[in-house]
């Protein structure tokens, strides 16, 4: 008998996640049974199945490891904004940009760092 991998979504905007496996003769049976094997506690809003032997995995997961700094691809790679803004403001003052800097703007929090 074939085994099936079950993937489900907890919320409509969430990812399709692996939630488990089951035995079934065909996909209709697998879909029917998955409702009670994996979703009987109201775990999700959507699910699907794929035959285990049709699911291909990366043979060597160490291929995913990164050994050099990839912080430039992450938010953490950009920091020190407070100082950088201060430096730019000081440069603006040195250029005599007081009028531009003092214009009225909405009262709201700014800044990303």
């Amino acid at each position: 008998m074939a085994t099936w991998e079950v993937f489900g979504r907890r919320k409509f905007d969430g990812p399709l996640e692996h939630v488990g496996t089951l035995h079934a003769a065909d996909e209709r049976t697998a879909l029917l049974l998955a409702r009670e094997t994996h979703f009987r506690h109201n775990e999700g809003v959507d699910y699907g199945v794929v035959r285990t032997d049709q699911f291909h995995r990366l043979e060597d997961p160490t291929l995913l490891e990164r050994h050099t700094d990839i912080s430039y691809r992450l938010q953490q790679g950009y920091s020190g904004f407070r100082e950088k803004r201060e430096r730019a403001r000081a440069a603006a003052d040195a250029r005599g940009a007081d009028e531009v800097r003092s214009r009225e703007v909405p009262n709201r929090r700014g800044g990303s760092a």
């Binding site: 730019a88 403001r89 440069a91 940009a97 531009v100 800097r101 214009r103 703007v105 700014g110």
Partner: peptide
């Protein structure tokens, strides 16, 4: 509202 204040704050016209 998000970007103009940031430009002005840096003296960018």
């Amino acid at each position: 509202s998000t970007y103009v204040p940031k430009l002005w704050d840096l003296g960018i016209e």
